[in-house]
Design a protein around this nucleic acid. Structure first.
Lengths: 107, 107
DNA sequence: AATTAACATCGTAATATTGCAATATTAAAA
DNA sequence: TTTTAATATTGCAATATTACGATGTTAATT
């Protein structure tokens, strides 16, 4: 079917999974790493840097924005995409909470 | 195309993304949480607990096994699936390293 | 030996994702 | 005002994922 049965899971489970899912593509990992190594980020750089078509990069940026990880500011003709540090930290804490509370008790 | 261009990314980026991807489904999050709340885990419990068909649960378990997060032991007719604590910790450290080294420097 | 219980695997339908070319859109530059 | 540069959006093809019924497989039970 290809459709996830979200309604049988809790909201926490769904949005935790959504965070993981967005990070679950090497292009998006690479984009975040590249942005963090720059003082400024311009989308066009990413096209050359990553090696995917402009439309594809734009799409990946959109997904990263969808979970609040990126802020985009218009700078003339260009865009300046930056990591939203507050959200970044929130996400890291959220994932750590998941790892810390989910422990093995058997075998 | 639906196919990820893995060859243009580093091995680190690809397997980090793979970890995220496997965790990026609410059923798999739920499975890990359920296992952690039990002293033993039997797959059949999961079918009732999660509310997906037995074949579907089996498939999700397979994906969790594929990144080494679950150990499965045969126990008579049943299976005992457990979290591989060593791998679990490795993964947590790996993700934290990603979060800590990827920082924002602009805007 | 037949039955049953607990999974795993296969096949398949429905939907999602990835990627790109083509085409907007927007703002600076000429 | 036309042109150009940078990015977004649309439409589509190829592939991946999700889910489940049907069918194996294996081991305990009868």
């Amino acid at each position: 079917m290809g459709i996830t049965k979200s309604q049988i899971f809790t909201e926490q489970q769904n949005d935790l999974a959504q965070f993981f899912k967005v990070l679950g593509h090497p292009a998006r990992v690479a984009i975040l790493q590249y942005i963090s190594n720059q003082n400024a980020c311009i989308c066009n750089d990413l096209v050359e840097e990553i090696g995917l078509a402009q439309a594809t990069i734009s799409q990946h940026l959109k997904e990263l924005k969808s979970i609040g990880l990126l802020n985009g500011e218009v700078e003339g003709k260009s865009m300046c995409y930056c990591i939203n540090v507050e959200r970044w930290t929130y996400l890291q804490n959220r994932l750590n909470a998941f790892f810390n509370t989910t422990k093995s008790n058997c075998c």
